[in-house]
Design a protein around this nucleic acid. Structure first.
Lengths: 233, 233
DNA sequence: TTTTCTATTGGGGGATTCCCGTATTTTGGC
DNA sequence: GCCAAAATACGGGAATCCCCCAATAGAAAA
């Protein structure tokens, strides 16, 4: 097994779809798709090997809003075998359409999460009998898992690195205090913890809000978590 | 390859360490360890195949606080090969001790994140040459990835406190209001927007906090964003 | 060196949030 | 249908937060 190092390839859009195509080849898949969501930047990146016709239909019909593979995978740790969703009405809605475009309704979606709330979904489909699918599943799932990590890691780090320049930086004290706030501590608590006045805590909090262009502390905490300056407590 | 279904085995503590032992056997590893952290519940679950002597030393010396493999993996998407940390002073501190207990300083830690801020770390160590390690790496990393997902998924869903937190659903009104809070609106603002009393807004906010097991609104917003119930505003 | 800027620390007082109640409507289980 | 639980809605008063003010130490710029 060989993992192509994505970071050595030239252009992003092309190299990601090419990477997906390689995954298909290696495991005899019909199609592969990746969707990466970065709540910090509010961006969604998608790369697919599907035909343009299906992509357009998918977009136009707003199928992403009801696609159960996405909803399920967003809330799951483990890979989601689409067969588990077969009885969902939304599934039938989406895959009846998919079938018209010649796409198989057999596949798996692997969720990958980064430390900053970012989520990547790698899906792969293959048209074969259920027995065959089941038999192959345990063989390729580990590799797909590694592929999903690889592509997601590359997408977000290239995205966040560029985005990092536009994001504010908190002083260590500010980040420290905001982290305690995110952990549910009151200003008085934090003052006691850090052995400073709760007034001082508030000033740091205020400058944190200003740096994050937040109107309120909850908004500041939300942004700081989304950006990755602090972690949810 | 065969994945032993953890949920079918009897007792938790035993079955997890047994699972780790099987991982070791399959991939010729010396030791394996899993640590699962649930920041929301504040719980940490750990299972290891190390000797008790090392465990005790590790605990007693508070090595978990400085262990760079943990710190690094907590912030990473991809597996962390320990060789990347060799020059860290903390690494040398921890693994000088480890060496005294006969543990190899070659290993990898795989981070797995769930949708609710929970993190699982699966580590595996093996005493061999660097060349051999490198050569084997691409072979077992995919499988280890799948194993990490499997064990973390099981631990998290069997943890009762987590289980409760794991499916927090906000009512539409609660999510709507929390979303406005994350957008920096005050309770009065939100009341005006939704044409209800700001008192009512506060009640929904309170039940949101309770459902998210949050002590404060900022903490609730942070968690809701981390979970994906709302988006940063 | 002097100036300027930022990080840090602190107080008073008004605004906001939060905890304590209550009540009506909707939902879900038996 | 009935009852329990949750969702929705509102208010008083205490606790907390947030905006105004000022001050010092240290770093960077002049």
């Amino acid at each position: 097994m060989e993992i192509v190092d994505l970071s050595t390839l030239p252009d992003s859009e092309v190299r990601y779809t090419e990477f997906l195509r390689q995954i298909c080849e290696k495991h005899d898949m019909d199609h592969a798709a990746y969707a990466g969501m970065n709540p910090a930047a509010g961006t969604v990146a998608g790369f697919v090997t599907y035909d343009d016709a299906w992509n357009e239909h998918y977009q136009k019909q707003g199928l992403i809003m009801i696609d159960p593979t996405i909803h399920m995978a967003r809330r799951s740790i483990a890979p989601v075998d689409w067969s588990r969703l077969e009885r969902s009405p939304d599934f039938q809605r989406v895959f009846r359409d998919a079938h018209d475009f010649g796409l198989p309704s057999q596949g798996v979606t692997i969720p990958i999460r980064g430390p900053y709330g970012d989520i990547g979904l790698l899906s792969a489909t293959r048209n074969c009998s259920k027995e065959e699918w089941r038999k192959l599943y345990t063989n390729f799932i580990g590799d797909l898992q590694a592929m999903a990590v690889h592509i997601h890691d590359n997408v977000v780090s290239s995205d966040q690195l560029t985005g990092a320049l536009y994001h504010p930086t908190l002083s260590s004290r500010e980040a420290e205090i905001l982290q305690w706030v995110a952990a549910g501590k009151s200003q008085q608590d934090i003052g006691d913890i850090l052995s400073i006045s709760h007034r001082t805590v508030e000033v740091h909090l205020r400058s944190s809000r200003e740096k994050l262009s937040a109107l309120t502390t909850p908004q500041a905490v939300g942004r700081a978590i989304a950006i990755g300056l602090i972690t949810p407590g």
